[in-house]
Design a protein around this nucleic acid. Structure first.
Lengths: 120, 120
DNA sequence: GTTAGTAGTTACCCAAAGGAAAGCGGTTAC
DNA sequence: GTAACCGCTTTCCTTTGGGTAACTACTAAC
């Protein structure tokens, strides 16, 4: 027989599995600049210096690291065009769109939480 | 006239607003142990030492800090029962359930991403 | 040949997060 | 009285993340 508790709560193993998933997700998206860079590139593909200008405050070292991390996770690609001099374009992958609903949820929650904190 | 780009992309201002919201959300949920503690308490209310035992690896100092942070953000409550000795129970608030769909999305994405990384 | 731009790398520094261990004030059991 | 448990706090230490600034290799323009 189902109780309210069964509906609301997870079992311990479900909880542990879910916890592992959440931690894995956070591991990929952690750091100060990952989500800003993704959002910046989802909007349109850009060059290194363009990203630097758009995301004010990020240093070239950190941007370089973030781009590498994101590429390793298949969220962006680095395309080299053999012009002279070479043109390098970073763009969000199709795979990065799997983050859309997550980013949406994060955005909604962040917004309503900010309001909640203000009013209290 | 709507183009495909209009459907997929956000405007710059929408993007900036969304980014701020996402950053705010991450600010509340950051750190290694916040989400584990929330999940642990959503499952059932618990005492300090019970949380310590369930979340292996967390030190009392860190747990103490996380509990305070979460309480400040109305995600858990600290209830003191005047037994002798006093019993202190931490429990997830009703408000913490606003995180449910977010945690769900995070869990789903984390799981599929782990699979994706493995297979490549 | 000097300046400027692109796409970074390298070296050094600092602050915050987190881990380890001990202690503390209270209570209960032996 | 002493050992043990609860709910922490304090101290100290290490790791990590991120910031600053300088520098490199290449190209193009003047």
């Amino acid at each position: 027989m189902k109780t309210i508790e069964n509906e609301i709560l997870m079992s311990k193993t479900e909880c542990a599995g879910s916890l592992k998933n959440v931690i894995d997700a956070m591991y990929v998206l952690n750091g100060k600049w990952k989500l800003p860079v993704i959002l910046c590139l989802v909007q349109s593909p850009k060059r290194f210096s363009e990203i630097q200008h758009e995301i004010t405050g990020i240093s070239p070292k950190v941007l370089s690291n973030e781009l590498k991390d994101l590429e390793l996770n298949y969220l962006i690609t680095r395309k080299v065009y053999p012009t002279t001099p070479v043109t390098i374009i970073y763009e969000a992958t199709e795979y990065s769109h799997t983050l859309k609903s997550l980013l949406n949820e994060l955005s909604i929650w962040g917004e309503q939480h900010r309001k909640k904190i203000k009013e209290q």
